[in-house]
Nucleic acid binder design. Sequence first.
DNA 1: GATAATATGAGAAATTTACCACAAAGTCCC
DNA 2: GGGACTTTGTGGTAAATTTCTCATATTATC
Lengths: 208, 208
Amino acid sequence: MTRPIIPDIVVSRLPLYLRAISRMEEEGLEYVSSHELGARLGISAAQIRKDLSQFGEFGKQGTGYHIPFLKKQLIRILKVDRVWDVAVIGAGDVGSALARYQGFQEHGFRVAMLFDSDPAKIGKVINGIEVRDVADMERLIAEGSIQVAMLAVPAEVAQETADKLIAVGVRAILNYAPVNLAVREGIRVEHIDPVIHLQHMTYYLAPR
Amino acid sequence: MTRPIIPDIVVSRLPLYLRAISRMEEEGLEYVSSHELGARLGISAAQIRKDLSQFGEFGKQGTGYHIPFLKKQLIRILKVDRVWDVAVIGAGDVGSALARYQGFQEHGFRVAMLFDSDPAKIGKVINGIEVRDVADMERLIAEGSIQVAMLAVPAEVAQETADKLIAVGVRAILNYAPVNLAVREGIRVEHIDPVIHLQHMTYYLAPR
DNA sequence: GATAATATGAGAAATTTACCACAAAGTCCC
DNA sequence: GGGACTTTGTGGTAAATTTCTCATATTATC
């Protein structure tokens, strides 16, 4: 069984679709057309239909998409019909905020571990999660079979920390450090850096 | 004078180039080839040459790119050869972390204002920045001629807050709220949502 | 039940984006 | 000074992505 390979750019839009229709469900809507969904997201209706049709026939002519059904399908496709345990590395401002964020639980994720190297932080409890010594990180992550990590450490140690994570089984890293991580084939990395986004936007701004 | 329109996808890579060569400069390197830069970023050398050539001839055959010169050019192109005052809306975990982040200053940005609606937070000082009442937001932003904002408010009030920001002159919004903002033509919005990134990555993970 | 209106899924076309290949220019080393 | 390397910028090509178009199906209305 060789499923057709779905372009990554298509996959990258699925979470946006899921977020939008989840909101629509909360609003009490039952059906949505590709046109309405597209209007909310600033994406063409054709694009949405094409994307979704890669995974199956979820819509109905004349009616559109049944929101609870489409939501269920997207959740399944994105594999968030389970809860992924996530390790947060670094308990500074960013790591702490991630540990406290309430938005993970209902979208398929749980901050299961939190690490830092600062003795002053180790042992503290943030949102019910104890800060562990990063020296024990590899052992604990391996024991916990954790596949997903969020990296919120200083730029200087980001690469070496990522290498350690990958060595003990982590396969997806959400990197908050302002460096490009080099990883081997098969490891997923996504980057979050506000400066990158701001600089992208200032290109289009006129000086004032 | 009609400059050729640069594709946005090209512009979106420029901050990555800038970040990478800034790091190379710190490492004491003087010249870099498109091939070396590409290897660091996971981007093809041809892509980098093509992207940069859209803005001028910055390289030299046989030598590559002079790092300080290229850096200067990218800084100019991205308009971060000045410091942009930025307003942060919301002084919760995310807003506070943004106010404390030391990485803005040297990359063209300064958190000039911080707002919240919680009386318990108003008046507090975070990293030298006083938390102001969001009720005064519009007046203060208009007075400060602020064009860039980072939105770190609850999802429920994100759209209305964005509308207010735009009404008083903000033209670029970095949105941390997990909602798609609808904005008029000419307003730049970028989104940061860890859940979106995590869900994108779990698509590729095998259950364990 | 017929007709008009609505909306999907998919093949085809158009557009955008990325890559290749090479001439030209610079460097290095003997 | 000359030959072997290296590297850029670019025109052309290939690949990827988006949009268009339309047959087909469903719903609503009279």
